[in-house]
Amino acid sequence: MAEEATTVREARLGKTVGPVPQAVSGVVLLLPPGEESSARGPSPLAAAAVRTLSRTLAREGRRDGLATHVVHYRYRGWNGAQAQLARDAEWAADEVVRRYGDVPVCLAGVDMGGRAALRAGGHRAVNSVLALAPWLPEEDVAAPPEPVKQLAGRRVLVVHGTNDRRTDPELSFRLAARAKKANHAICRFEVHSDGHGLRQHRAEVLALAHDFVLGSLFGRPYSRPLQDALAAPPPLGLRMPLASGFGQRR
């Protein structure tokens, strides 16, 4: 009997979300959720978790030359020391350089994708990281803490719901506090009474996300709350409340 061929999976970039800019001046890579451990291929539902965010960023960044891509992982699991989702994020940043040249990249991840964005943030093309409700491992005195040195020189925004029951918001605060010691350009917003999906205040979260991404990639002025959060010393700038109605046009 012939041996069954082993399937070799490769990471890939999804098609550009929305119209392709004539001249690409910056790229945002959307990193969907994953699982702590799994050798299965990525879930078809994973990309849906970043669909609204990807469309919002593509629409708001069109005039600046923003290219928006969703990263499709090889596997859905982080898988311990292999950190496969972070490795796929690094591959995606390499692919951006190959396709578009020397343009700034923002890694924007949700859940386990948030952890991947933070871990891969040291890539030479990355100038900013957005982590929404990032999944982070429980702290263990016997294991090294989640690394933060790679975030030096990057602008970093973490957003977490205070009622998140899937990913502990206190863990993202502690990581941000450690990162802040080596990188002043990091802030964290708390979405009070919201859960893991950040659905209750989705409009405000999307407005904050595109404010941060477009400001980081293209030098647009940040909103006053974001400026204040980046400038404030810890813990103030790491427990900044996201105000109801943020980003509403008047």
Rank of each mutant, 00 (worst) to 15 (best):
M1V: 15
M1P: 10
A5Y: 05
T7Q: 14
E10P: 10
E10W: 07
K15P: 14
T16P: 08
Q22K: 14
Q22I: 10
S25N: 14
V27I: 00
L29F: 01
P32G: 09
S37L: 14
A39N: 12
G41A: 12
G41H: 04
G41T: 12
S43Q: 13
P44A: 04
V50E: 04
V50H: 04
T52E: 08
T52D: 11
S54E: 06
R62D: 11
R63I: 08
R63K: 13
H69F: 12
V70K: 00
H72N: 09
N79H: 08
N79W: 06
G80N: 08
A81M: 12
A81E: 14
Q82T: 14
A83H: 08
L85H: 01
A86E: 03
A89C: 06
A92M: 09
D94P: 04
R98I: 02
R98N: 11
R99K: 15
P104S: 06
P104K: 05
C106Y: 00
L107I: 15
G109P: 05
D111S: 14
G113S: 12
A116L: 03
L118Q: 01
L118A: 03
R119S: 11
H123T: 03
N127L: 14
S128K: 02
S128T: 13
L132K: 05
P134T: 02
E139Y: 08
V141Y: 00
V141I: 06
V141R: 07
A142Q: 11
A143I: 15
P145A: 12
V148A: 06
V148H: 13
V148F: 12
A152M: 08
R155C: 03
V156C: 07
L157F: 10
L157D: 05
V158K: 00
R166M: 12
R166F: 11
P169C: 02
P169Q: 00
L171A: 12
L175K: 01
L175W: 14
A177Y: 10
A179L: 10
H184I: 07
H184A: 13
A185E: 12
I186C: 00
C187R: 04
V191G: 02
D194S: 15
D194N: 07
D194Y: 00
G195L: 05
G197N: 02
R202S: 06
A203F: 04
A209F: 03
A209C: 06
H210I: 14
D211L: 08
S216C: 04
F218Y: 09
P221H: 05
L226Q: 03
A231Q: 09
A232G: 09
L236A: 13
L238C: 03
L238T: 03
R239I: 07
R239L: 14
P241E: 02
A243P: 07
R249V: 08
